[in-house]
Amino acid sequence: MPFLVLFLGMYLAPICVAVYKSLFVMHSQGLGLSGGPSTVFKPLANYTRALGDSAFIGAILRVLLFGVVQVPVMLGLATLFALVIDAVSARVRAAFRFAAFLPYVVPGVVAAMIWSLLYSPNPNASSPFFSNGLTLWSVANVVTWTWTGYNMLIIYSALTAIPSEIIEAARVDGASGWRIAWHVKLPMVRSSLILTTVFSIIGTAQLYNEPSILQAVSGGAISSTYTPVMAANNAIHVPDFQYAAALSVILALVVGALSLGFFKLVNRRGPAWG
């Protein structure tokens, strides 16, 4: 009997979590599709408007470009650093892990403030970091700074899990350190690379904190609809809740499609996932 009681508790708690989550999605869909009590039922109006909203589409394309460049650069650096600290003494490794991890503890908002002051020390003069297509990469730099060390730690943990006999065997066969890193270690941490890639895609989709802080010093280079989440937030402040909800739904669908697409891609190349 006590088992049954607890079982129900254990069973209910995660169900509540799941229902709790699902409510929000349903709610946003409900608002997006049917509108609030005082609005008219026009199921597609918000969606056709969103698809014709050049600012919103532009934001999505901008963030896609951001992801295509920033995620590989960041994870490439994280992997490189993970391989390097795998090859140095324990003391150097501990010191570097600490340094690389510190930015992760800095809130995105504060990181953006620090970098904004580095980018434009004089708030009255325009900064070269927010000119001519550099703006997006100035934002990307803040994100890279924050998350590289975190990803490095995840990849490094996977490296420590490689059985040392495998490395020794490769060494006995005469493989150099770089070759071992490339041909033995990298394939064996594939699953952690997949994980960090998926998390980075998700992180890119929700880009908000950094650009919204940098907006203040960007001299207009960062608009209030610079990223999709900023666009949705902007719609709340209009206020146009129904439209904001529709934007969120579209964004969720795009993210879902991208994540699924990525899983399909890595599954086709090999069996490591799952």
Partner: peptide, 27 residues
């Protein structure tokens, strides 16, 4: 099914929920 739902929830960006959450809480 529950575990699958939780896995799917891991892939939903939290920031995307902020707008729906705000709408829910104001309701």
């Amino acid at each position: 099914a529950l575990f699958t739902a939780i896995l799917a929830a891991v892939l939903v960006p939290k920031m995307l929920l902020a707008t729906p959450l705000y709408l829910l809480f104001s309701a």
